[in-house]
């Protein structure tokens, strides 16, 4: 199903500037939404993340969503949080995902349930995100469970982690990422970048620690499509930092031109981020407006011929990004 040269692993290995996108599964027992959105993204991105009950709101599971994407010929990234599962369930899900052909996993702590639609739920957090990464690497490289029992065959996983370069303590964020990389993270998707200057500063620290040579850093990018979304982003989403300059610029565009300006901000950010040494790609988060993702890819001037799976091999160009 995965066309050779189209997956995230292959794209990163080939040194291409990758594009991943986020897709939030629906609240309902129907895979159609994932299928349609996945199909619309095929040919525009290298892989698509399926969130894991994002924000603590119950949705179709990330494993189910990932399988639907596989079926549509899209390389999935299965997100898995420590919020809802203990180490037994986590290891089982990792093994199951690999067994079903889902190779990319993104391991994160997850939002606390107090933010979601079940604030009365028991927060699990048996392992933390670093320990999850470590566990996944032990499963894969040593074929061993946390209990010490062996696993045959071990799961073939591409292990991902996240980092937020903008959350305090800012001076410790690169070192925290270093721990995840030591534990086994092979690629890292960051929180949304609206302050490219601050991101560049963090990347300098990442390079000083040599992390960009041991893991692929993928910068988070997303459009703020309305004044309401801006307000929500600034007050309700933990860990997202929208600088005043960006907010003012968007608000000045007015309600009519808001989305247009947001797309312009994205394209400019991508352009600047591509110039930063050690960045391997971008991760697009559109929060339900996935139809905007092709538009963003288009405007950012990324060569997308390699994504086009209907194209013949001769159109496959190498290393499109500088």
């Amino acid at each position: 199903m995965i066309v050779s040269g189209s997956g995230l692993v292959e794209a990163l290995r080939a040194g291409r500037f990758v594009v991943t996108a986020e897709l939030g599964p629906p609240r309902g027992a129907d895979t159609d939404v994932v299928r349609k959105k996945g199909r619309a993204l095929r040919g525009w991105v290298d892989a698509v993340n399926i969130t894991d009950n994002q924000g603590g709101f119950v949705r179709l599971s990330s494993l189910a969503g990932s399988l639907v994407l596989l079926d549509e010929g899209v390389d999935p990234v299965m997100q898995l949080t420590a919020r809802d599962r203990n180490r037994i369930a986590l290891q089982s899900d990792l093994v199951s995902a690999a067994a079903l052909g889902v190779r990319n996993v993104l391991l994160l702590s997850g939002d606390h349930p107090s933010y979601g639609d079940h604030p009365d739920a028991k927060p699990v957090f048996d392992l933390d995100s670093t320990q999850m990464v470590w566990t996944a690497r032990n499963l894969r490289d040593h074929g061993q469970l946390l209990s010490g029992r062996s696993l045959d065959p071990p799961p073939d996983l591409h292990i991902g982690a996240v980092e937020n370069p903008f959350a305090p303590p800012v001076g410790f964020r690169a070192r925290r990422l270093a721990k995840k990389v030591r534990a086994g993270a092979e690629y890292v998707q960051t929180q949304l970048v609206f302050d490219v200057g601050a991101f560049a500063g963090w990347m300098a620290e990442v390079r000083d620690l040599g992390l960009h040579e041991r893991a692929h850093i993928i910068a988070g990018i997303g459009p703020i499509v309305s004044p309401q979304a801006l307000e929500h982003m600034r007050t309700k989403v933990p860990g997202v930092h929208v600088p005043d300059a960006v907010a003012t610029r968007l608000l000045r565009a007015g309600t009519e031109g808001f989305t247009e300006e947001a797309l312009r901000v994205c394209a400019e950010s991508i352009h600047r981020i591509r110039a930063i040494e050690g960045v391997s790609g971008i991760h697009l988060m559109a929060f339900g407006r996935e139809h905007l993702i092709p538009e963003i890819v288009d405007r950012s001037g990324l060569d997308r011929s390699r994504f086009d799976m209907n194209a013949c091999g001769s159109r496959e160009r190498s290393a499109d990004a500088g």
């Binding site: 702590s109 927060p123 933390d128 980092e163 959350a167 303590p169 410790f172 925290r176 933990p238 930092h241």
Partner: peptide, 14 residues
């Protein structure tokens, strides 16, 4: 609240 033993989560407020 998340009992993280390996460092702060990404949700720390500004």
């Amino acid at each position: 609240p998340k009992q993280l033993r390996n460092g702060p989560c990404g949700g720390v407020l500004p």
